[in-house]
């Protein structure tokens, strides 16, 4: 798992099956909660198959415009397809799993 704020997200070195990108505006309490929740869910269900990339928009505001970010925190599932977008602090675990398709994936690999 790595934390990156590179605008080009050139981080494909470690090939993980799950690539998530979390957009934050600095580590506000809500962003911290969101990250912790997400990290917990991923660790629990995806073990080390998951990479969460954190993008701080304050460091590069242009990304917000390019990626059409309005709400914070925003999570983008880059892979596996289909791409999904979630906003919020991910307190509802079931909802997160469902939206990201993790449950389905788990069933399939079982």
């Amino acid at each position: 798992m790595s934390t990156k704020a590179d605008p080009d997200y050139g981080d494909t070195g470690s090939i993980k099956e799950w690539n998530l990108r979390l957009f934050i505006t600095d580590w506000t309490p809500r962003c911290v909660v969101a990250y912790k929740n997400l990290n917990r869910i991923c660790s629990k269900h995806l073990k080390d198959m998951c990479q969460i990339e954190v993008v701080d928009l304050l460091e590069n505001p242009e990304i917000a415009r390019r990626e059409q970010i309005v709400a914070i925190p925003t999570l983008m599932k880059m892979s596996p397809k289909p791409e999904r977008i979630m906003i919020g602090d991910f307190t509802d675990e079931e909802r997160v799993l469902k939206t990201l398709g993790i449950e389905r994936h788990r069933k399939r690999t079982r």
Binding site: F23, T25, T28, R30, A34, N37, L57, L58, P61, E62, A64, R65, I69, V70, A71, I72, P73, T74, R84, I85, M86, I87, G88, D89, F90, T91, D92, R95, V96, T99
Partner: peptide, 18 residues
């Protein structure tokens, strides 16, 4: 967009400020 839990519109603020 799926919503789960609390969020704010800081993204909009960032864009506007920029």
């Amino acid at each position: 967009i799926e919503e789960t839990g609390e969020y704010d519109l800081e993204g909009l603020f960032v864009r506007l400020a920029a």
